[in-house]
Simulated scan of single mutants.
Amino acid sequence: MFVVTMTQRSVEPSERRATEFHQDIQQHLGVELSGSRSPDPMAYCQVFSAAPQVVETALYAMRLGTWNVGIGVGSATEHEDQLTGSGVRAADLAVALAAKQGQLVPLRVEAAKPPRGVEQTQLGKHAQSVLQLLGHIVSRRSDAEWAVLDRLDPGVRGQQRRVAHELGMTVQAVSQAIKRSLYNTEHEVRSAVSLLLDQTDAAVNIQSNSGI
């Protein structure tokens, strides 16, 4: 299980921004989610069982540049309308670390427990490193590049001519925007970081079930 907890980087956080993020991420994921699970209306918290959804949520937050993102790997259960569990505590720790001043990419991953016989850095921290790299890439893209990328479907060939027509650009300019933004590389690496998160989740579950 994955818990994503986010806090606003703005000096004047607002409930509206959290509500808008919830609406936007549902559209990006193509699924209907329950509302934010955070007791703070200006923060955002969501529970996911699928690693690719975690990656999409984190990278969209990095694109916006207005959120600190903490990803906790562990359990999450609802008790008296409150979310509790080791994954929730891990996410709270992760977002607190992400919010520290001077962070180039305000994103952290914390596993509930170091998996048996494996240092935490070998799984969750590797996932964190890859996500931070991807976060750096998406956060540096221009509005013009996003105008192109938002019209693409990952893995589908022959889209450049259609996008060029929609935007009134040359096919060459569209191709250059795709290459400059490292779009294809990003989507290839997403599967790798999803695998790392899944491995972290599986290892945490094994240790938790062992009673250690």
Rank of each mutant, 00 (worst) to 15 (best):
E32H: 03
S36W: 00
G211H: 08
Q27A: 14
V171A: 14
P39W: 08
R140K: 15
A112V: 00
G65N: 12
D92Y: 13
P106S: 14
T121L: 07
E32D: 06
V69A: 03
F21D: 09
D143K: 07
P154L: 09
E15C: 12
A96V: 11
A192E: 12
Q199F: 07
P115M: 01
W146Y: 15
L83Y: 00
Q53G: 11
S181E: 10
V105R: 01
Q120F: 05
Q82L: 13
K100F: 08
V156M: 05
K113P: 00
I212R: 12
D92L: 13
G87A: 06
G87K: 04
D81E: 12
S139C: 04
L59Q: 01
D81R: 09
V73A: 09
R108W: 04
L29F: 04
R161Q: 15
S142E: 14
L134V: 10
L197R: 02
A203G: 08
L195Q: 07
P39S: 09
K100I: 14
V31K: 09
S38T: 13
T121M: 02
A58M: 07
R16A: 15
R17F: 05
N209D: 14
E15K: 10
A202M: 09
G168N: 10
H126W: 04
A173Q: 13
D198F: 00
S142G: 10
V163W: 15
G87W: 03
V31E: 07
E166G: 03
T84S: 06
M169V: 05
A173M: 14
L131D: 01
A50M: 08
T66D: 15
R17W: 06
V109A: 05
G168K: 03
S208K: 14
Q159H: 08
N205F: 04
A50V: 00
S14T: 14
M62I: 01
H187L: 07
G70K: 05
E110M: 03
Q27L: 10
S208W: 12
H22K: 04
L167W: 04
E80D: 11
A173C: 14
V55D: 06
F48K: 04
Q159I: 04
R140F: 07
E119K: 03
R161G: 09
A147T: 04
G117W: 11
G211I: 03
V204Q: 06
P41M: 14
A203K: 08
Q159T: 11
E20V: 06
S139P: 00
Y183M: 13
V109T: 02
L152Q: 12
A173K: 12
G117P: 00
G85S: 02
E186Q: 15
S75E: 14
K125N: 04
R9W: 11
S49H: 13
A202F: 03
S139M: 05
S49Q: 12
S181W: 09
D150V: 06
G65H: 08
A51E: 05
L59H: 02
A192Q: 13
T84M: 13
